[in-house]
Simulated scan of single mutants.
Amino acid sequence: MYPQTSRLRLRRFRPDDAPALAAYRSDPAVARYQGWSAPVSPEAAAQLVERFAAGDPGEPGWFQYAVELTSTGELIGDIGVRLHDNLMQAELGFTLSRTHQGRGYAAEAVTALLERLFAEQGLHRVSAECDARNTASARLLERVGFHLEGRRPAHSWIKGEWTDDLLYGLLAADWERCHPVVRPDGE
């Protein structure tokens, strides 16, 4: 079962998601702090969707969740999770269409996914990093419980310039203090 809230559903990508993915990933404001460059062609989006749909969220490596509105089924973004080989830790990243930013959707989707990662998959730690100039993403990570663990000055070469990276982490124990988990086995 994929995470769901009253407003959002996280699910596997489908072929018909390609046009929406191409649209929001082609927005220069959305792509600004990301590893891809806008525009994203319809062909490239179709290939991405095919690759995303083939992933397995329980296996090591990246899995990309589609984020859709439950009310309309509209694809509004995606969240990637890279599960480590040890199956006890992961990294995450998120992208939301500009027209849906500022409404709490990203925090809601990330929170629902963290609940799944900690409560259902039993992860010990989730980490994230972001461009230090991306203050909205940094605030979101802190709002959902991540702790700033460090800053790597001029660490990433993105779009023709060196950027600082902010490193965030969240331990299962810290998550559970703020979000009590009811495990299926009763522990």
Rank of each mutant, 00 (worst) to 15 (best):
Q4R: 15
I76F: 12
P39S: 10
Y168H: 02
H179I: 05
E43T: 07
Q64E: 14
L171R: 01
S156V: 09
S26M: 09
C178F: 01
R143Q: 14
F13H: 15
T95G: 02
P153L: 06
L83V: 11
A31L: 09
S127I: 04
R139K: 15
E120F: 07
D16L: 08
D78F: 05
A29L: 15
H100P: 01
G169N: 03
R177Y: 01
A173W: 00
R12T: 12
G61E: 09
E120P: 01
L10Y: 13
W175N: 02
Q34D: 10
R14D: 10
F94I: 14
F63D: 09
T135A: 12
P19G: 05
R11F: 00
M1F: 06
G80W: 02
F52M: 09
T70M: 07
D17F: 05
G150D: 09
L96M: 12
D131Y: 11
A119F: 03
L69S: 06
W157P: 01
L8I: 11
E108L: 09
Q47K: 12
Y24N: 02
R12Q: 15
D56A: 13
Q89C: 13
G150P: 11
C178M: 08
A172R: 12
M88N: 11
A44Q: 13
L113E: 06
E115Y: 06
P28I: 06
A45I: 10
A38R: 00
G35W: 04
L166I: 02
H155P: 00
Q121R: 12
A22Y: 03
L75M: 04
L69W: 15
H155T: 04
E74N: 03
E115T: 11
P42R: 03
H179P: 10
H84F: 14
D17T: 08
T99F: 12
F13M: 12
F13L: 10
W175Q: 01
P15W: 08
A44D: 14
R9A: 13
A132P: 10
L167Q: 12
P15I: 06
E68W: 09
S127R: 04
E74P: 03
L92F: 12
W36L: 12
R151Y: 10
